[in-house]
Design a protein around this nucleic acid. Sequence first.
DNA 1: CTGAAAGCGCTTACAG
DNA 2: CTGAAAGCGCTTACAG
Lengths: 346, 346
Amino acid sequence: MSKLNSNDIAHLAGVSRSTVSRVINGYANVPEETRERVMKVIHENHYYPLISGRLLSGKSTKTLGLFWIGQPQLASDSLVSNYFMHIIDAAAQRGYLVLSSVIDNLTDKANVNHVRRIFMEGRIDAGIFVGENNNEPLVEELSSLGMTLGLFDYYHENEDVPGRITVNFERDSGEKAIDYLYSLGHRRIALIDGDFSRISCVHRHESYMRGFMKHNLPVQNKWIAAGGIVSQGGYEAAKRMLSACMDDLPTAICANNDAAAFGVYKACRELGLSIPGQISIIGHDGHERGLFTEPPLTTLAFDFRAMFASLVDRVVDTLEKKENVPQSVFLPSTLVERASCRRIDA
Amino acid sequence: MSKLNSNDIAHLAGVSRSTVSRVINGYANVPEETRERVMKVIHENHYYPLISGRLLSGKSTKTLGLFWIGQPQLASDSLVSNYFMHIIDAAAQRGYLVLSSVIDNLTDKANVNHVRRIFMEGRIDAGIFVGENNNEPLVEELSSLGMTLGLFDYYHENEDVPGRITVNFERDSGEKAIDYLYSLGHRRIALIDGDFSRISCVHRHESYMRGFMKHNLPVQNKWIAAGGIVSQGGYEAAKRMLSACMDDLPTAICANNDAAAFGVYKACRELGLSIPGQISIIGHDGHERGLFTEPPLTTLAFDFRAMFASLVDRVVDTLEKKENVPQSVFLPSTLVERASCRRIDA
DNA sequence: CTGAAAGCGCTTACAG
DNA sequence: CTGAAAGCGCTTACAG
């Protein structure tokens, strides 16, 4: 017995394909008795309509594309790979499947074509982007083609581009870090900044600056270094920065994110600086590994599960033509106090 | 200008749809001049054939299903979520996309139907399973329906079921752990076993036993506990086991995997047992976090990237009707010596 | 080398 | 309430 199609089911149930289709799609105008008879045949034969037919006759794919843009380093970072789970989970809640691609970068034309192809071939109803640069041309292109897009950490002045859904880190978390360190008595605060092609890193830097301003703290260029968003970059930046000012050290360092903070730990260890004895460190993200470092890392944590749920839900709401779907959402950070920052006498 | 179809392209290029299709599918019998003319029109218009049409006319989806079965705890384990990246990467190398699902368990009928549906609807050419129990009925069912399946950590006596591709952990790694500890002088070795619904955990236990046998070490029931494969389980098992034999402690513990070993660390810390001073610990996997624990964890590491590449490659080879594709492959472990095992005087 | 035509498996106006 | 028919966008024997 080869695979049955809707015709076979129709014959077995003594109806036409039209009626089989109506039953499958839950149309109201089918009498209960007929519906049950057809359903019975469907179940008995493990019949599922092929999507190829459904798609061609205009049904949607019920599939979201997930485009993970980023360096291999990022991919091996345990925090970010959890994103996958969150997105797949959130999509499944809404009855959507997830078709995933990992893309090194979008400067390579072949990669851009790969993403474009997935949209144009009609494999997905919408796409979620994670790790893309702000103002990524491909994103703008797809947007202008009318695609529904879910963008993580993407910010655009013109927020009301139709079909463009974003989720972002709150913009004041840097200031919160400064507030916290200030309250512990710190006045000499250094910054390991992130990668300014990511809008969150720009916002975070600006937010730190507002914190400095608010508390009347001096902005010292020698205490500011760009480290990127992975551990190695944080390490290099901290090593460089600290080595250059061993005679005039800061008492605290704000790392753009936890991965970078782990690099800062390593730099401090190599320079013989104790944490938090000589240097307090605060990160951003809420990376699981921060629980296990020595000392455990104090950080401004984000609820990534909630962030992705928000993103996916609003993308699906948009696909389903809901009204008044918020296009732009910022999620707040929470201070998680562990042991990497100490109170000092100012 | 709404979306073009192959007819539009044909008109623009002054040929028939047949020829457009021949060009797209790389048929040999199209003169170079025609091919170029058609290609030009295709590129100029960013034309991509819709998969709906292609599928219906018999083309394959070029998509692999990925079914991730497992507890939420596992999902948040940083090691395993990296699996995603490996699988997506390996598939992309071969021109395949990956449609992913995360499934709590396969005892729930709705979950089973969800998986079955993805196969039956013709969304995928083959499915990869990770985290499923050995002899999972759904796997057997899909197999008997003629589906091509890639199974991670799945072992079946009857290895030659067509279309069933497996990759497994080498079966002797437990013995290697015992050999290593023995060479350091350990004679009193405890076991924190895994979850015996996973075949690798069964094999590993048997392998430890062979190691005990080989070196003539006594098998002490009080030094053997089942801990599962996540950190919490390892913690509980070790706590229980060690508390019960504080007057007659082992000198070393083999943890079924690194996650469980991290739990064993915690138990030792709570019981005031120093690592490796009083207890040496060895894990399995090569979990990144083991680099950062205090002390760094000695372990038998597996190359997960290679494991998944092997699995995906052989699945694709099977789909592409290659000859003599090995159905079952075991990948070796490598001893990664860090600082959690010490030499003792026997 | 190439076009006209059939066919893939659905869904959905349309007509009754 | 329901069936016959058209149509979705491709690919591929078939015929020339």
